[in-house]
Nucleic acid binder design. Sequence first.
DNA 1: TTTGAATACATAAGAACAATAGGTATTATT
DNA 2: AATAATACCTATTGTTCTTATGTATTCAAA
Lengths: 113, 113
Amino acid sequence: MYSKELLKGTLRTIVLKLLAEHGTMYGYEITQKTKELTGGKIVLTEGALYPLLHKLEAEGYLVTNTQSIGKRIRKYYELTPEGDEKAISLSNEFADFVQTVIYLLNPSLAPKT
Amino acid sequence: MYSKELLKGTLRTIVLKLLAEHGTMYGYEITQKTKELTGGKIVLTEGALYPLLHKLEAEGYLVTNTQSIGKRIRKYYELTPEGDEKAISLSNEFADFVQTVIYLLNPSLAPKT
DNA sequence: TTTGAATACATAAGAACAATAGGTATTATT
DNA sequence: AATAATACCTATTGTTCTTATGTATTCAAA
């Protein structure tokens, strides 16, 4: 588990990109998939995830589709076209940022040497 | 310039690692060096930097050495042994986190294929 | 020469984000 | 029968950074 601050700017990116990769997902599924894919290194808390999903929906990046599984409900989230664009741009921005920071932290690793 | 959230968990790491690389630095110098090394992509605001430096000092990771340059003062910061360790561990943690997120965002880039 | 930019420190108020902690309810396992 | 897992949710709190503001010196340009 990483120091919690690292996730802060990245959670949106993770959620949108996961949806871009896996299509339709529901909230709990996102937490499980993240835990599984990262070997427990990244664990999304529900207190962070659900409000974020609601926000992304309000911002027009996601649409929902609520289904009943027995007596329990699931809210499936799906990217809108805007969400798809956002997923790509955030992902690219993250990659660019990381490159920049890595260079800053260790200039000897500069590319194009 | 990146979306501001990305920097959130990384500022400590940047500051400590810069000091580890360049030895003694003063606050303003850190902002300039960062701007210079990143081509203006990362700009540290003073409202974030100075309180952080004070905090890192209070936590025992930095020591200061105030010098007078004419009538103006400079507070030089230097890593303690603990600060040196912290710089390394945060830097490693960041690299590990990035690897994990990159894999999560794009599983096709997985290593050891 | 005086005005503005750059240098150099600092703090306070506010926004944004995620963690923690709580809540409800169903289903599966032991 | 009890516990864990599933599945949703919100409120409070802490941390972090931004924005805004303040002080003061030094340098460059008009």
